[in-house]
Amino acid sequence: MSLSEEELRGLKPDKTVDARGTSCPGPLLAAKRAIADVPINGILEVLSSDPGTKRDLPLWAKKVGHEFLGTLEEPGYFRVFVRRKR
């Protein structure tokens, strides 16, 4: 279940990974690496400027068993929030 924009803006991520310099599938690999540093039920924020990421990261979260919380669009990049579930 995706959170509202206001709720997303209020989140305090346990870790933020900046993958804005990379192209698809770089942000996916960055997310996979970074989630290991987030405690279970903690929040990972991924910054990406690759348009593929917007749909890739929610699918990734579902596939590997985490919870996709939502995406905020900023000028030129996305902020994607995922809660670690396992």
Binding site: C24, P25, G26, L28, L29, A31, K32, D56, L59, W60, K63, V64
Partner: peptide, 11 residues
């Protein structure tokens, strides 16, 4: 390599 990377990330 792009597909392999995506697959590795997606378990």
């Amino acid at each position: 390599a792009v597909l392999v990377s995506a697959a590795a990330a997606m378990d």
